[in-house]
Simulated assay, not measured.
Amino acid sequence: MKLVAYIRVSGAGQVSDGFGLDVQEKAVKAWAKTNGHRIVHVSRDEGVSGATEALDRQGLSEALLLIRESEAEGLLIPRLDRLARALTVQEATLAVVWRDGGKVFTADGGEVHQDDPDDPMRTAMRQVIGVFAELDRRMVVKRLRDGRAAKAASGRKAVGAYAYGFHGDGEGRERDAAPNPTEQAAQARILELRAEGMSYRAIGTQLDTEGLPPRRAAKWSAMTVRSVCQKAGVS
């Protein structure tokens, strides 16, 4: 049978936990070979949540289109949670494949069979898997939210960009703001020149001349200098 394989990761975490795109692709290819199927295409979504609708995923939409156009006879995924981590998305996607005459296979469990009124347990078991995949996603989100709250409560920076003069240092929950020597020097110079009565525009020109750069632009603007002053409590 001609199959289109679909693989997905939601972020860098799945690369580090051993289930990145390369690992998933090897799994689906090995399963197809063992079971006598041929993969005609591998569709990928990288950095896409499993709760995202199929229409908003380029890779999954591509895979479903190949089935609709009869370029492939079925969909192969490493496991069901790569298809979706929200039950409604899982069930809707399966229904689309089955409506278009395709079959669905997982490398860790074989064919995902269509609903059978004489076997309600089949549907229930599939949906239980989907429920727990969704629960796992929600628990991950909660842990991240709790981690940010705990970090903020301890006085460390939880989210957002670091103020000019600082950059992120450390890993994971221990990551926090640390002085950036180049930016600290520029900030000190800004405050020094402002204390001497120079305008924001003149300060920017002076910093460009002295080779003290802003964070993202090629040259200083009056508004950027003003922002640095205001954040330091200087008007």
Score class of each variant (00 low, 15 high):
L3Q: 11
L3G: 06
S10R: 05
G13M: 03
V15E: 14
V23K: 09
Q24R: 07
Q24W: 00
K26S: 11
K29H: 13
K29L: 11
A30M: 07
W31K: 04
W31Q: 03
A32E: 01
K33R: 13
T34W: 02
G36S: 07
H37L: 04
H37A: 15
V42N: 13
V42R: 15
S43T: 08
R44A: 01
E46F: 02
G47P: 02
G47N: 08
G47K: 02
V48G: 02
S49E: 05
T52R: 06
T52P: 03
T52E: 05
A54T: 09
L55T: 05
L60R: 09
S61H: 04
L64F: 03
L65A: 14
L66C: 06
R68N: 08
E71Q: 14
E73M: 06
G74R: 04
L75E: 01
R79C: 13
D81M: 06
R82P: 00
L83F: 04
R85F: 01
R85G: 04
R85C: 04
R85N: 07
A86S: 13
A86M: 09
L87D: 09
A92M: 08
V96L: 15
V97T: 12
W98I: 14
D100N: 14
G101P: 01
G101F: 01
K103Q: 11
V104E: 00
G110K: 09
G110Y: 01
E111G: 06
E111A: 13
D115A: 12
D118L: 12
D118H: 10
D119L: 10
T123P: 03
M125V: 15
Q127K: 10
V128M: 15
I129E: 15
V131M: 15
E134M: 06
E134L: 06
L135N: 07
L135Q: 12
R137Y: 04
R137V: 15
R138H: 09
R138Y: 04
R143Q: 14
R148Y: 09
A149C: 07
K151F: 03
A152W: 05
A152G: 08
A153H: 10
A153E: 11
R156K: 14
K157V: 06
A158C: 12
G160Q: 08
G160P: 01
Y162K: 06
A163Q: 12
G165T: 02
F166D: 08
F166L: 13
H167M: 05
H167E: 08
G168A: 14
G168V: 02
D169L: 08
E174T: 12
E174Q: 13
E174L: 15
P179W: 06
N180E: 12
P181E: 10
E183C: 01
Q184L: 11
A186S: 09
A186V: 07
A188H: 09
I190W: 00
I190D: 02
E192K: 12
L193Y: 01
L193C: 05
L193P: 00
R194C: 05
G197D: 09
G197K: 07
M198K: 14
M198R: 14
Y200C: 10
Y200D: 14
I203H: 10
L207I: 00
D208S: 08
L212G: 06
L212T: 03
R215E: 03
R216W: 03
A217M: 10
W220M: 03
C229Q: 11
Q230N: 12
K231T: 05
A232W: 00
V234A: 14
V234K: 11
